[in-house]
């Protein structure tokens, strides 16, 4: 029958149309594509994730980001015979690459601002502490002797000319180098045309552009004592770094000794289990995370609140979690895990 046939065709078409609409809507709602590369660099696992770009463009940009990371590492690491920091430590005073000089200058600024809680001259102290399974406490006399040459005020750095004079101190830029590498990697990605990406260098995180969750990023904070997260931050942009007493530590007679030393005493700072700092630059976040940790919960949080572009989370306690302090600017952005 003509009427029946037309009706059938109409039905089939509307069914096909409805199906196409459903498929289209579901396709739009699918999770965003991402391109990811991971490498071991700077003593940790570094992962770069690019969102929304095609694989070819992403891969090229990520390649240039790796080169930046390698460059920063080769300049600033203490543990290579050819790095500029090693050569500086050897010579005591030298003209270095402007990138190195700038980093030293920024490190000194942060040391001044934090009244020495972050100090890039703790190298002699770091050399005395060996963390690991079989750990022995360094001799107290040795610590006192090492303290003698610690002090950021001894160092002068001319970022433009490149001249750095250590004044008898020895440089350890590990507390700021990863953050700087992340910043340089993010800049390289931006120059490469990437609009949205995340660089994660062993927990030092740099964000580029809008996140995959409706323009935002969800960045977790590791619980310093348990498996899993303490909570997560909803951020639009910025960088995040955490200093924790669980990263490198050892136990002697049941007491934990960790790698975040108080530059004033030469011993691990107490009272904080982990400090997380959010700032525009990862280099700043990295250094401040160490500084806030050393300052302790009260002084640390009031320092964070006093600086406009800096926010943070401090987990205080001696061996167990006592309190989780969240800076005002992060109160709305922090979701506790439990």
């Amino acid at each position: 029958m003509a009427v029946g046939r037309r009706r059938l065709i109409l039905e089939v078409l509307s069914f096909a149309g409805a199906l196409a609409l459903v498929i289209f809507l579901m396709y739009r709602a699918r999770p965003p594509t991402s391109y990811e590369e991971s490498r071991v660099a700077m003593g940790t696992l570094v992962t770069i994730t690019v969102y929304g770009a095609n694989d070819g463009a992403a891969s090229a940009a990520v390649g240039s980001a790796w080169r930046e990371i390698e460059r920063v590492d080769s300049l600033l690491t203490r543990y290579s015979r050819t790095s500029e920091v090693a050569l500086l430590n050897e010579a005591g005073r030298a003209v270095v690459d402007s990138a190195t000089a700038t980093t030293v200058a920024r490190a000194l600024e942060i040391a001044l601002a934090t009244e020495g809680a972050f100090d890039p001259t703790v190298a002699p102290l770091m050399d005395l502490w060996k963390f690991g399974e079989e750990m022995a406490l360094p001799d107290h006399a040795e610590i006192v002797a090492a303290l003698g040459s610690v002090g950021y005020a001894r160092v002068s750095a001319d970022a433009e000319g490149g001249l750095v004079d250590l004044g008898g101190a020895q440089l350890d830029l590990d507390g700021i180098a990863k953050g700087r590498a992340v910043d340089r990697a993010v800049a390289a990605l931006r120059r490469g045309g990437v609009e949205s990406a995340l660089v994660d260098a062993g927990g030092d995180i740099g964000l580029l552009g809008e996140g995959p969750r409706h323009g935002r990023w969800r960045i977790g904070i590791k619980d310093p004592r348990k498996e899993g997260l303490l909570g997560a931050l909803k951020l639009r942009a910025g960088s995040v770094a955490t200093s924790g007493d669980y990263q490198r530590c050892g136990f002697v007679d049941g007491v934990r000794y960790h790698h975040i030393l108080n530059p004033g005493t030469g011993y691990p700072a107490r009272g904080v289990l982990s400090a997380t700092v959010v700032s525009d630059e990862c280099m700043v976040a990295d250094a401040l995370a160490t500084a806030v940790f050393v300052m302790g919960p009260t002084r640390g949080m009031s320092f964070i609140e006093s600086v406009e572009s800096v926010e943070g989370v401090i987990v205080s306690g001696e061996e167990d979690v006592e309190n989780v302090l969240i800076s005002t600017g992060l109160e709305d952005a922090f979701d506790a895990a439990r």
């Binding site: 960045i219 904070i221 590791k222």
Partner: peptide, 17 residues
């Protein structure tokens, strides 16, 4: 390197540690 693959909706984009 030992790592778990996959990205779940509930998991963060990265974790600071």
């Amino acid at each position: 390197v030992v790592r778990a693959e996959g990205h779940e909706r509930g998991e963060p984009d990265a974790t600071s540690r």
